[in-house]
Design a protein around this nucleic acid. Structure first.
Lengths: 132, 132
DNA sequence: AGACCTGGTCTATGTTGGAGACCGTCAGCT
DNA sequence: AGCTGACGGTCTCCAACATAGACCAGGTCT
């Protein structure tokens, strides 16, 4: 009866809703960048991904790709050649999500200038000179 | 001359681009949920936000709101009554971002079922019974 | 008087992320 | 023959971060 328990199924604002759980796992720097890279550049090998998403460590790359695979967004295929060739690509579910995430990344690229200005203004009025 | 240095201005995939910096600060569970809540429910006080975004601690609430304020997305107004009333609301920049983020949250709410199924399938085929 | 609400801050503790070493197999170079 | 590098990871260590909870001053309600 309590109002905060009325979200029977799907509500990212409810702490114990499965949607929140999924949201929390995806709302992360590396997950989103990997989705975007696979969406923009298509299928890539492990080392290609590491080069396209600059700055990701091998550990986080492995770990994040495993999560995306487990969540049904990414497919991992091993071609048993030598050297082994491991291809990562988006599944349909992953594509549909990446399409919603792309506008956010575009927004950031278009408005990062404004954000930087706001930061400078904030720091100027709140942290005069260096001693913040 | 190196191809990976050709992104002079705005590229979330480049490690040292300001866009990446902004992206990394925003691509976070609490930042996105706060933006969404302020977008959906409008202006809210500190304690209202804590209730609407279930599960956020006071520390992360303060810290994340400060970041959003510094980035020019959120306005913080103190009404010096007793008890003090602190109102948080989106600035135009914040609204324009929240409009891009909302479809992502909707996607999660609509597809969390599929994600959960994928997880179950993954765990079933990769971690037979309990001993993952 | 005692409990609670306001908007926070501070501290202890547990989880996480990043840096770098290591692995075996193979190709290319010298 | 040996050295180097790429491949796709795994492992360990340490610093950074998130969470839980106590604490605060001022005011209201009972």
């Amino acid at each position: 009866m309590a109002p905060e328990q009325q979200h029977p199924e799907h509500d990212v604002f409810a702490a114990f809703c499965p949607s929140r759980n999924v949201f929390a796992e995806l709302a992360d720097k590396w997950s989103l960048l990997l989705l975007l890279s696979l969406h923009k550049l298509g299928e890539q090998r492990f080392s290609e991904l590491q080069r396209s998403v600059v700055g990701v460590s091998r550990k986080m790359l492995t770990q994040t790709l495993r999560e995306l695979e487990r969540n049904g967004l990414v497919r991992r295929t091993v071609q048993p050649e030598t050297p082994p060739r491991v291809i990562y690509g988006l599944l349909p579910l992953g594509h549909s999500l990446a399409e919603r995430v792309a506008p956010v990344a575009e927004w950031v690229e278009d408005h990062s200038g404004s954000v930087l200005e706001a930061r400078a203004e904030f720091d100027r009025t709140r942290c005069p000179s260096s001693g913040c």
